[in-house]
Write a protein that binds this DNA or RNA. Structure first.
Length: 493
RNA sequence: GCCCCCGUUGUCUAGCGGCCUAGGACGUGGCCCUCUCAAGGCCAAAACACGAGUUCGAACCUCGUCGGGGGCACCA
């Protein structure tokens, strides 16, 4: 008998969408697709203080760009609305009330000041900073009276004082903690809004979530969450805590400063940045999927579809993984090479446009084919092939003379080459290659030397796609003009 | 300080008691190809944290040590 699988990606809109959350979303998505289950997007915005209005948009934009489509969510609705926790306040309140009635929770009137003082004392005595249970011992009648009088209060969970709580994590097996080390954590804040510990559990229940796949920063609160679920008498979801992403050095998780540092080195952990840097979804997906998991013993390049076919929770790795930006480049380049020419051209169009060029269709296709194996990110196509779309090139004069040749010798060679090309009634550079090689031999130069001069003259670069391919894209008149111009420069040197 | 988790080359990983003289990938070095740059092909260096135990046999099981990480909020 199979329970229907439902998973959810539940980010909080407090910051930018980064590769860590993208990977969590990906694994959730993969499991859902693998078994034909549902994938829900839920926004956990109970933290009003840290709420950022742009964050939700960036999350949605990031997921869409990556192609991780959801079946239910705040933007598209679904049978379990609301999908934003601030829109479900009453639901959480009712549930908190039920917990109080079942003697699993209690109102607490302690002030923030008292709590802070208490914590300080605990730390001073090197004890665990747990709530001391003052209000837990309050007479319920008195508590009810104070609430009726409008006194500010929070609702705390009544954690068992004795025994141990054991929870099963799919990747780690059983995890046990002694209940006396667990805090009477707050379920509902004094402003009436639930905290994650309550809201997420209630929502997972409401939405019939079968597998909770989330970051392992939640591992330490897992027993608490299991206790809440059990207090309600609900069936527990399968818990699966993903490994953490560590900074490239492997020492600690990425901090804000590390993220900034990465930017100065030309990297980023943020999805939107990666997109703007010219990474493609296929590359990013492949990259993050393999940090903390393996999909196949003998293969490591996968499309989303292939990942779905091979996804297996059992192949997730519980140990933390250091981020490796070189691999992002590797996977991105690999996936760019796998694109069809038309597809690459379509993706390159906005990149060239952004750089100020007006790429037309047919030529863009040719350029795409020419740069395809030479670029790691889409943006690199501009450096490698921008000259295809420029009216004029301005080669650095010092790059013009052939290796080991004087400017005069180079000018002569260039003129001779130009004459060969100009003499052809039908312009076909590739067909002229043999003749040009013969020319080089006649002059006593290596072909590469002659081609080097031509490359500088025609492309304005010392590095470019293959000369003859490039010439075909550029066209006769432009080539002859550029060669002539370069010769003139050489004559004056 | 307390609680929890993790530990195979520099990095991501395969390995689930004999298939391991530990496999793949990134990166690194070399060679080949070559008009530049790439891509591609071939080769190389590089790891089971340590110590006990269990067993005929341990990277795989157990315990300890050490190392790393996460959490300890009216944040998520």
């Amino acid at each position: 008998m199979h329970m229907p699988v439902t998973v959810r990606f539940a980010p909080s809109p407090t910051g930018r969408m980064h590769i860590g959350s993208a990977r969590t979303a990906l694994y959730n998505y993969l499991l859902a697709k693998r078994v034909g289950g549902r994938f829900i997007l839920r926004i956990e915005d109970t933290d009003q203080k840290r709420f950022s209005p742009e964050a939700e948009a960036e999350i949605i934009e990031g997921l869409r760009w990556l192609g991780l489509d959801w079946d239910e969510g705040p933007d598209i609705g679904g049978p379990h609305a609301p999908y934003r926790q601030t829109e479900a306040r009453e639901i959480y309140r009712e549930h908190a009330q039920r917990l109080i009635e079942k003697d699993h929770a209690y109102p607490c009137f302690c002030t923030a000041e008292r709590l802070a003082r208490m914590r300080e004392e605990h730390r001073a005595r090197k004890e665990q900073p747990l709530y001391d249970g003052l209000c837990r011992r309050l007479d319920p009648a008195e508590a009810a009276q104070r609430i009726a009088a409008g006194e500010r209060h929070v609702i705390r969970f009544k954690t068992p004082n004795e025994g141990t709580t054991t929870v099963t994590d799919m990747l780690r097996g059983e995890i046990s903690v002694e209940n006396k080390t667990l805090d009477d954590f707050i379920l509902v804040k004094s402003d009436g809004l639930a905290l994650y510990h309550l809201a997420a559990m209630v929502d997972d229940r409401r939405m019939a979530v079968s597998h909770v796949i989330r970051g392992s920063e939640w591992l330490s609160t897992l027993p608490l969450h299991a206790l809440v679920v059990r207090a309600f008498g609900w069936r527990e979801p399968a818990w699966c805590h993903l490994s953490l992403f560590l900074k490239p050095s492997g020492k600690g998780k990425m901090s804000k400063r590390d993220a900034t540092q990465a930017m100065t080195e030309g990297h980023s952990i943020f999805i939107r940045d990666l997109k703007e840097m010219g990474y493609i979804p296929e590359g990013i997906l492949n990259w993050i999927a393999l940090m903390g998991a393996s999909f196949d013993e003998a293969q490591d390049v996968f499309t989303l579809e292939e990942m779905i076919q091979r996804f297996d929770l059992g192949h997730l790795n519980p140990s933390p993984a250091a981020i490796n930006f070189e691999k992002a480049d590797h996977f991105n380049g690999t996936h760019i090479r796998r694109l069809s020419t038309d597809d690459l051209a379509a993706r390159l169009a906005p990149v060239f446009a952004k750089a100020g060029y007006a790429p037309d269709g047919a030529k863009l296709r040719q350029v795409a084919a020419a740069v395809q194996v030479r670029i790691v990110t889409l943006d690199e196509a501009v450096d490698m092939g921008g000259f295809f779309f420029r009216e004029n090139v301005a080669p650095d004069p010092k790059d013009l003379p052939g290796k080991g040749l004087t400017p005069a010798q180079s000018a002569d060679a260039l003129r001779a080459a130009r004459e060969i090309l100009a003499a052809k009634p039908a312009f076909d550079p590739t067909a002229s290659e043999e003749e040009l090689r013969a020319l080089a031999e006649k002059l006593g130069y290596k072909p590469g030397v002659l081609f080097g001069i031509m490359r500088s003259a025609i492309t304005g670069q010392t590095v470019s796609p293959p000369l003859f391919t490039s010439m075909e894209i550029i066209g006769r008149e432009t080539i002859l003009a550029r060669m002539g111009a370069a010769e003139a420069v050489l004559r004056k040197m």
